[in-house]
Design a protein around this nucleic acid. Sequence first.
DNA 1: TGGTTTGTGCAACATTGTTGCAAATCTTTT
DNA 2: AAAAGATTTGCAACAATGTTGCACAAACCA
Lengths: 147, 147
Amino acid sequence: MYAKDARSLLKEHSLSVTEGRLRILELFLRANGALSHADIEKAGDAPFDRVTVYRTLQSFVEKGLLHPIPTSDNTVRYALCNDTCTEAHHQDDHVHFVCNHCGKTVCLDHIAVPSVHLPTGFSPRQVQVIVNGVCDACQRAPRGPKA
Amino acid sequence: MYAKDARSLLKEHSLSVTEGRLRILELFLRANGALSHADIEKAGDAPFDRVTVYRTLQSFVEKGLLHPIPTSDNTVRYALCNDTCTEAHHQDDHVHFVCNHCGKTVCLDHIAVPSVHLPTGFSPRQVQVIVNGVCDACQRAPRGPKA
DNA sequence: TGGTTTGTGCAACATTGTTGCAAATCTTTT
DNA sequence: AAAAGATTTGCAACAATGTTGCACAAACCA
C-alpha cells in the first residue's frame, strides 16, 4: 500500500530529511492505523522532545504528508495521506473507522465517500466520515487486543 | 425546533435543576450551532468555574442531552441531541457542517446520513459525517461574521 | 568544504483538563 | 415548611498538553 520509503517521501514533499522526521514517518509507515501525538511520543526507542513532535507533525500536515482525523475525544490523530495529496491540494475525503473495542483508528482509503445532500446555500469543500463500531480484527477475536 | 424549555429538558433527562445547568443549557438552546467548552466559559454574563463547565457538559452527554462533535482541531464541540436520545440510547448519526469562513458548526439534523459500505468484518455502530465548506450565511455575506 | 538555511532541544510559559474536599444547593420526606 | 440526605459547586492544587524564544546542531546547496 505505502511502498515508498520514508526518505523519498520526505523529499517528494519538500521536507528536509532529518533523523527525527525519518523516525516519525517510519512510525506511520509501519502503523496500520492512525497515530496520536501521544502515541508518537511514547513510541518505544525514540525519546523525542515533545516540541519536536509537535513541529514535525505540523509540517507533515502542511506539506500534505499527513492529515488530521477528527475525533470525539480530545485527541487529534494523524494518518498518512494518500498519494494524491500535495501541499497545495489535499484530497482527504475519506472514511475513517474507529474501533470501539481496540481503540484503533484506520483509514479506509478505498471506500467511497458517500455524497451528502446539503441544504441550499451550503457549499461543501471536504467531507469526512467517521464510523464507530467493531473492526474486523476484534470481530474475530472477541477479547480484543488493546482496550 | 427545540421548543422545550431548559428546566423541563433537565428533568426529562433526570438531571437535577441547578442555576448553572439552566444557564448552560440555555446557551445551547439559544445558540444555533455547536458550542465548545471555551465558548461556554467565555459566554458573557455567566462566569462559571471551569470545573463546573466540564462536569456539566459531561453529565449532559451522559444523560443524552448533548453529543460531542468530532473535530480536526483540538476542540471538542457539543450540540443538543435530537429528541430521540436518552441515556441508554444515543441516536446521533447526523451530518455536521463546519464553516471554514465563520467557524460556526451546525448540526444538520434533517439531512440523511448516507450509508457507507464497509469492508467485510467491520460492523458500524455510529456514523458521523463532517462537512467543511462555506455555510449559507457566509455565502451571502462574503465578508463573514467571525473569522 | 564552507556558508546559509532549517530543524532541534531546552527552558519557561500558557492553556486545558482532572481530582479531592468542604461549603452550598437541590430534592425529598416528614 | 423545615430538616435530612443526596447531589452539585467552587476552590485549590495538580497533571497533562500545547506554545514560544533562543542558542546550538544538523541538513542543504553551491
